[in-house]
Design a protein around this nucleic acid. Structure first.
Length: 449
DNA sequence: CGGTTTTGACCTGCGC
DNA sequence: GCGCAGGTCAAAACCG
């Protein structure tokens, strides 16, 4: 963020007079003292009014930065408040869902069943996609199903045990457990978020520290693919692949996989939450139709970061049995609607845009307050639940999307902030990049001051 | 000296 | 079974 970098420059500039003062080079040197916890600069002016003008400018900048900080804090507070509201709503809806199945079974009410199915389908699908790394975060409906299945299996095995003996039961239980473990492991391991963005740098900083563990030249692309592992946490499973597009070398493809097992920088969490909410909403509807498009406008959080990279993002959802992948393409040419466009597709139907701009704006109260709905009202209600659950319960997608989106913000920061010092990777070997590389770790652009 | 990068070797999955 | 391609490992080199 420009504000942050400008503030850093401001602080650096403020440090210089202080250093001069500590060297004791004369009485005319500026000095610094603290008042009420804030730094106040005083200058003795003998020669000209230029330092005074500079100080005035600096103070103005400082005031602007403070105002920006207040705005960001207010936004963060609002996000937290709405998160609490959504959590309460989730609890309320969950309580209602616990009552509904018996009623549905007794009355055999197709309409009600349809509604429940509408709720559960997105949940299932969301889980299928969201299990990037943390399998503990299951959608409630799905969890109940799995638990019930497991219970049924256990009961069946208990009966077997009576007839066939204890040994067979143990084997059956073991097999059932293995199947479940394998299933979750596969889905956890494979889900990916891929970002296509134009970048002058060979890496996109994203607020995390990455350690390169391999490089490979893929067939059909002379640019080598670099493999990075998150080094922020101990044994963090998150990995990313970085590769330039062969057809357009200005396009950098960054693929994230896994879920951070450590606290993420507070910086871009609000952005990640809004992004995950948007993408969850986009994803949650994809079961009922295999292809489709939804559009998301630039929320305040989006517009402050993503729009600086590209006002229009096309998200392709490719879904196979074991490897669901969301590709955010920020290289698409701008259109005039100023909307982030998320496009949903399967691998067999790469792109199939639907006219969704005309739907009324509904959805989440804050983060998606301007999100146009693309489903029926009752389904939209279900989506709200899904989005809420996804945000609050599934850190895996949040983490992956955080990494992905914060890459964009970090990238945008670097594009506008070229004075950022380069680490050795900038001067190191980077056969893929024809431009200067940037360090794997960059301060997050959305970090609150 | 510790962390990171480089790079050849090795492993694994998949298609034929 | 074999070969290929992608992904990972790990030792050496590098750097601050």
């Amino acid at each position: 963020m420009e504000e942050k970098s400008s503030l850093k420059n401001l602080l650096k500039d403020e440090e210089r007079p202080y250093d001069c003062n500590t060297t004791g080079n004369g009485t005319d040197e500026p000095f610094l003292h603290n008042t009420m916890g804030s730094s106040v600069l005083s200058l003795n002016l003998n020669n000209s009014g230029q330092p005074l003008n500079q100080m005035g400018m600096l103070r103005i900048k400082l005031e602007e930065a403070k105002k920006e900080n207040e705005i960001l804090k207010t936004m963060l507070t609002k996000v937290n408040e709405h998160c609490t509201v959504l959590q309460n709503r989730i609890l309320f809806e969950m309580q209602q869902h616990q009552l509904s199945p018996s009623v549905i079974n007794k009355n055999n009410n197709h309409e009600s069943q349809g509604k429940i199915q509408d709720v559960e389908k997105p949940m299932l699908h969301t889980r299928q996609f969201l299990n990037i790394g943390d399998c503990s975060s299951l959608s409630e409906g799905y969890t109940e199903k799995v638990e019930k299945k497991t219970l049924d299996r256990s009961l069946a095995c208990e009966k077997k045990n009576i007839v066939e003996g204890e040994m067979n039961t143990k084997i059956a239980l073991h097999e059932a457990k293995c199947i479940e473990d394998q299933t979750s492991e596969v889905t956890c391991r494979r889900a990916k978020v891929s970002i296509r963005a134009r970048s002058d740098f060979s890496l996109m900083g994203d607020g995390c520290q990455w350690r390169k563990y391999g490089q490979k030249t893929a067939k059909g692309n002379p640019c080598p693919r670099a493999y990075y592992r998150c080094s922020m946490g101990t044994a963090c499973p998150v990995r990313k692949q970085v590769q330039r597009c062969f057809k357009d070398e200005t396009v950098l493809i960054t693929t994230y996989e896994g879920s951070h097992n450590h606290p993420l920088p507070l910086a871009a969490r609000s952005l990640a939450s809004s992004t995950s909410a948007a993408l969850n909403m986009f994803l949650s509807g994809s079961l009922t139709s295999s292809v489709g498009t939804t559009t998301l406008p630039n929320s305040p959080l989006f517009s402050s970061s993503l729009s600086s990279v590209s006002p229009t993002a096309v998200a392709t959802f490719s879904h196979s049995a074991t490897c669901p992948t969301v590709t955010l393409d920020l290289t698409q040419p701008n259109n005039n609607n100023n909307y982030l466009q998320f496009q949903r597709a399967t691998t067999s139907h790469p792109f199939f845009p639907l006219p969704l701009h005309d739907h009324p704006h509904q959805g989440l109260p804050l983060l998606c307050s301007k999100v146009p709905t693309f489903l029926s009202p009752d389904k939209n209600l279900a989506l709200v639940d899904v989005v809420s659950q996804a945000i609050t319960k599934d850190p895996s997608l949040k983490a992956a999307l955080f990494s992905a989106i914060s890459s964009l913000t970090g990238d945008s920061q670097k594009n506008s902030n070229n004075h950022t010092p380069h680490s050795k990777s900038s001067s190191g070997y980077d056969p893929c990049s024809k431009m200067p590389a940037i360090p794997p770790h960059q301060p997050c652009s959305t970090e609150l001051i």
